[in-house]
Amino acid sequence: MEIDFLLERILPALNRGVWVTIQLIIPSMLLGFAGGVVLGALRAFGPRWLRRIGDAYTTVIRGVPLIIQLFILYNALPKLGIYLDGFAAAVLGFIMCSAAYHSEYIRGALLSIRQGQLKAAQALGFDKTSMLVSIVIPQALRRALPGCGNEFIYLIKYSSLAYMTTCVDLTSEAMKLAAYTYRFTEIFLVCGVYYLILTSLAAWALNRLEKLAYIPGFGKAK
């Protein structure tokens, strides 16, 4: 690959794209996780009808490819009179999807907290709020961390589907340039390197976080 082509054509385009990708990922990550916590809590402790709805939502989202979800979203919202630009539609799709996947881990983590500990907290006179803040949340987050962390990394990769909503992210920039220059291999190799850097950084950060949150013997069956 000629260095000129790399420096003058590929890198500027991909730098533009990676910036959009990062802008896509960060709100999707935060709101998707927040949505997952709410959805997971409802699926674990909500009234039966809400649990049913939450379970159904999660099953459907997990059973349909993200690309089709974006496809539906992008085609359906205008029919309902809602006009989102490509970027907003993509972020909305990512949030809806990650919330469903996160909720699985959150729900599992909440349900795996030993009931006896909650009894012990009550027996000591804890009120609901401080029990939630001091006992339930610190344990549930630790248990959900590995799964939710993986979901963040998936999100980085699946953000490449934003092209479906005509949002010009890292992958779309690569596709555009490739369609124009017919130099698929070089362009996508470099694009791959960009993603590898993003996912490796995320994996590194999550690893650090897991180490920080590590408690000897926590989470293992006794």
């Binding site: 992958t171 490739a178 291999t185 996508f188 190799l189 993603y195 590898l196």
Partner: peptide, 19 residues
């Protein structure tokens, strides 16, 4: 494993098919 898990499938499809 790092390569295949760290890179979107879409990008892999393009690299391997065209490359």
């Amino acid at each position: 494993v790092w390569f295949f898990r760290g890179c979107p499938l879409l990008v892999q499809l393009y690299i391997f098919f065209y490359g």
